[in-house]
Design a protein around this nucleic acid. Structure first.
Lengths: 255, 255
DNA sequence: CGTCGCATTGATTCCATTCAAGAACAGTGG
DNA sequence: CCACTGTTCTTGAATGGAATCAATGCGACG
C-alpha cells in the first residue's frame, strides 16, 4: 500500500543468512559492502550488455531489471531484482556483461568493487558458499521462467510470475498480506513473459474479471490465491521459499 | 562422425580448471568423485521433479536432459547436460528437486553422495569458487535461453541453440570441426525451444534449403557458420567460451 | 494545457499449432 | 533374412493464440 518501504536490517544479510549461518567476520565483511548508498534515478543503466563490468552494487531500495536486447529493438526482460539483491557480482567471474541492468524506479544502491569478491571467497568460505547457493537459486528461478516462456499460456504465465514475485518479496518482508508494490508497467511485464503489451493487457483484464488478481498503476492485489496456484501449477516449496538443508547451512560453521 | 567418444582426461576436471587453478589436493578430491562409473540405459530418470535428491553424478559419457513437466503432459526441456557436467549437485542446496533429469542416450555416470559437497567447500575453497563459477555460467546460459524463448522466432531459436551447443561441446573437445553428435530428436528440440515438433521439422527443412545447417538422425552439420551467427545474433564471447578473469582464476591459489 | 507515457479496446494478420496420415528407419523376434 | 512394431521424420490442410496496426482515454508533469 505504501510504496517502497525502507528495510530495518539489511535485506542482503537477511537472505544470505537464510542460507548459511554467518559469523561476525562475515557480517563485518558484508557490512563494508553496504556503505554509502547512492541514489540513482529511474532509467539509469547500472550494467550494459556487451561492455565490461564496472561497479557492483547491493540493491537497497527500488526495483531493477536485467534484460537483453536484439538489434531490431526486441527486448527480453530476464528477471527482476529487488532490495537485497546483488547487482553485477558476475563481474567477478566474467569480463563482459551478457545482460544489461536498468533501474525501473528510483533506486538506492551501495556500490562496491567486484574485484573484492574473490577476496571474500578466500577469506570467508561461508560467504563463498552463500554466494554459490544464491547463484543456484537464481538458476532455479530462471529454469521456472523457461518453463513459463516455453510451455505456459499467457494466462498461466501471468499467474505464475505474480506468485513468484509475491513469494520472493514475502521472503524478504517486502509484501503486504496479499498485495505488493509492483512498479512494472504492462509493457515491462510483456517483455518478461514474451508477450505483446496489448495481449498482457487483455489477459490481465480477463484475470480480473475471473476474480484472480487485480493490478493498478504500481500494485498487485491477489484476489484468489488458491485459484492462481491452480492455474499456474505453482510449486513454491522447492525454489524461492525452500529451506536450506542443515548440512549446508552449518557445514562451514566451524572451520 | 563417430558417436559418443571417450574422453582421455576427465572432462569435469578440464572444465573446472578452465575457471580456477586447481592444486593437487583439489584434483585428488575430484578424482574421488569420478570413480566407478555406472552404465545407465536410455530413458533412465536420474532425478525426479518433486522428490528428494538421492544420488549425484559426474556425467562421463552420453547426453542427459533437465526437464519440467506440467500435469497435462506439456513438457519443457530446460537444458542439455553433456559429459563433464555434474548432475544433482543442487542436492546440496535444496531438499526437493525442481527439475527431472533423464538420460537421452545410454549414459556413463559416476555416482557420488551430494552430502559431500559442503565438505568440499570447507576443505577446498578453490573448488567452492569453481562450483560457484559453474552455477553462474549455467545461469548465463539459461538467461540466453530465456531470450530465445521470449523473443526469437523459430528460425532464430534453432540457429541459436545449435551454435550454443556447438560451442559448449567444442570447449570440452566433443565436437568435430563444424559438426557434432547430437542425439536429440526433433521432438526433444521442440520441447527445448517451446515449439511443436511439426514446426521444428519445417524450420529445420527451411534452414537446410537456405544452406545454414543440416541435421540427420544424430548429427548436426553446420554449413554456414557466419550465416547462423548473423541470424541468431550469437555472442559467444561472454558466455560459454568466456575466459575467466585472472583475479578469480588465481585469487585462491595461495591461501 | 499540451505533451508524454501508460492503459484499453477493436480490427486484422500471421506465426505456429493441431489434426491427420504417409514414409523412412531401427530394433526385435521368428 | 525378413515380417512386425514403434519411433522419428515429413508434408498438407485447417485452426487458433497472440501479434500488429490503429485509435482513444487518462493521469502526471513541466
Amino acid at each position: 500500500m505504501t510504496g517502497p518501504r525502507p528495510e530495518r536490517r539489511s535485506a542482503l544479510v537477511r537472505h544470505l543468512q537464510h542460507a548459511i549461518e554467518l559469523g561476525d567476520p562475515e557480517l563485518a565483511a558484508l557490512a563494508s559492502l553496504e556503505s554509502r548508498p547512492q541514489e540513482l534515478e529511474r532509467g539509469t543503466t547500472l550494467v550494459k550488455e556487451g561492455e565490461p563490468y564496472t561497479s557492483a552494487y547491493v540493491l537497497q531500495a527500488g526495483w531493477v531489471i536485467r534484460h537483453k536486447d536484439l538489434i531490431d529493438g526486441r527486448r527480453q526482460v530476464v528477471d527482476f531484482m529487488i532490495p537485497g539483491d546483488l547487482i553485477g557480482v558476475e563481474g567477478s567471474a566474467f569480463h563482459i556483461a551478457d545482460e544489461s541492468v536498468t533501474a525501473l524506479t528510483v533506486v538506492k544502491a551501495s556500490p562496491f568493487d567486484p574485484d573484492r569478491i574473490p577476496e571474500l571467497f578466500r577469506g570467508h568460505a561461508r560467504l563463498g558458499a552463500a554466494l554459490a547457493w544464491r547463484f543456484a537459486r537464481d538458476r532455479a528461478v530462471l529454469a521456472e521462467r523457461v518453463m513459463s516462456l516455453g510451455r505456459r499460456t499467457a494466462y498461466e504465465k501471468i499467474a505464475h510470475v505474480i506468485l513468484e514475485l509475491w513469494r520472493r518479496l514475502q521472503v524478504r518482508d517486502l509484501s503486504d498480506n496479499l498485495s505488493f508494490w509492483m512498479p512494472a508497467s504492462q509493457s515491462v511485464l510483456a517483455d518478461l513473459l514474451g508477450l505483446s503489451t496489448v495481449h498482457v493487457n487483455r489477459t490481465l483484464r480477463k484475470m480480473a474479471r475471473d476474480g484472480l488478481l487485480r493490478k493498478d498503476q504500481d500494485h498487485i492485489y491477489i484476489l484468489d490465491l488458491e485459484g492462481l496456484v491452480r492455474v499456474a501449477e505453482f510449486h513454491d516449496a522447492y525454489v524461492v521459499g525452500a529451506p536450506v538443508p542443515e548440512r549446508l547451512r552449518t557445514a562451514l560453521t566451524r572451520p
